[in-house]
Design a protein around this nucleic acid. Sequence first.
RNA 1: GUGAGCGUGGCCUAGCGGUAAGGCGCCUGUCUGUGGCACAGGAGACCGAGGGUUCGAAUCCCUUCGCUCACCCCA
Length: 422
Amino acid sequence: MQFRLPRGTQDILPEDQPHWRHVISTAQEMARRFAYGRIDTPVFEQAALFERGVGEGTDIVEKETYTFSDRSNEMMTLRAEGTAPVCRAYLEHGMSSLPQPVRMHYFCPIFRYERPQAGRFRQHNQFGVEAIGDADPSVDAEVIDLGWRFTEALGLKGLSLVINSIGDPECRPKYLETLKAAYQPHLDKVCPDCRMRFERNPLRMLDCKRTDFACQEYIASAPQMSDHLCEGCADHFSKLQGYLTALEIPFRVDSRLVRGLDYYTRTVFEIQPPEEGAQSTVLGGGRYDGLIEQLGGKPTPGVGFGSGIERLVLNVKRQEAALADNADNVVDAVVVSLGEEAAPVAAKLASQLRNGGLKAVLTQPGRSLRGQMRHATAMGARFTLVIGDTEVAAGTAQLKNMDTGDQQEVTLVDVAAVIAKG
RNA sequence: GUGAGCGUGGCCUAGCGGUAAGGCGCCUGUCUGUGGCACAGGAGACCGAGGGUUCGAAUCCCUUCGCUCACCCCA
């Protein structure tokens, strides 16, 4: 085969569409209930938006963006994540003059140059929400609530919500120093990855899974962010937990939960499905109170999440949670013709049925009647219409109900009405 | 970027040194104007690509490309 799809991309075939529709329409309904209006941003943005927004030292920016210079030598990047573009739009369209917070949701493809594996692609689709302009923990709770109800409504079982607070510019740097001080004397005993993290992203050391070094031992005894939150962050986090409890959303606090984007502050959270597997997080997000300022706006808080539609579809399929939706595999009427004269009449009839809103298909004229009937069955026909010389002369068609096998002669003008009845 | 496994018609699978087989699907016929079942038949593969070993390779060896899974990271 000469052409293949690019690595890490996929075709979503007609047979997969019912699952996608299920996920997307559920997401749309949740966004509606929570009053999160839709926003669409371009597929590519100025490269600097992601560099500044996501953070230049992050893996995403450092080695995963699809960046290119266009014909006027401007550096552009295919959307690498959903939040920065929405914040850009918030600033660009003066949304700070709207009632705060501004609530928005989006569906969009995301591009990251990664090695593909189960649940990880170079192009994937996200449903995401952002609430910008309000720092109150009730908004964090609202966003989490939306995400939780969404995944729940998909029919997924055994989900778990993990939350954490990673502090703010006041307390996190101090905590990181404390953490590094605790690791410093033992750097020779932890894994090479952790030694790297020590320099670049110390929080990640707490998330190490390796057991062939002493990492786990030091994780267990490491100082916890939760013990080092400043007063404001601690209060915010405890209020958030109060809201979640009131909303009857089960959650677990995990001090090892960290996110890879630089802009997160205070609240971070993830929703995990029960199945094992490396790339399992189905929805993740948090608060980003410094981002808008970072992008050149005045200090504006925000909170949101992104969810991977491919991963959700994967889980829906695994759990067979989608309702039986075989509407795609059913055709209202298949029109069959016999003889050269009948062919255009049959084509006209099919066209007429479609104009009346029915799903109609014309079989290949010239095939044997048997062959065309077989084809009608394979297409999932509810009704088959047969037109031969006799019918052309009479202005009628033989209408056959494919379930019952009943057949009757119907005039061409009545066909649509008879089919519509049943 | 690192590591492991796998690449046979549209899909799934057999063959593991002697010149490609079966199932599903598709098409045709048994049934000269009637489907779903059954039966018969047909089309469709240079066995991912390149090189090597051999009288002979889908089968063994090397290289390469691709896919998959895991690490890293993330949705």
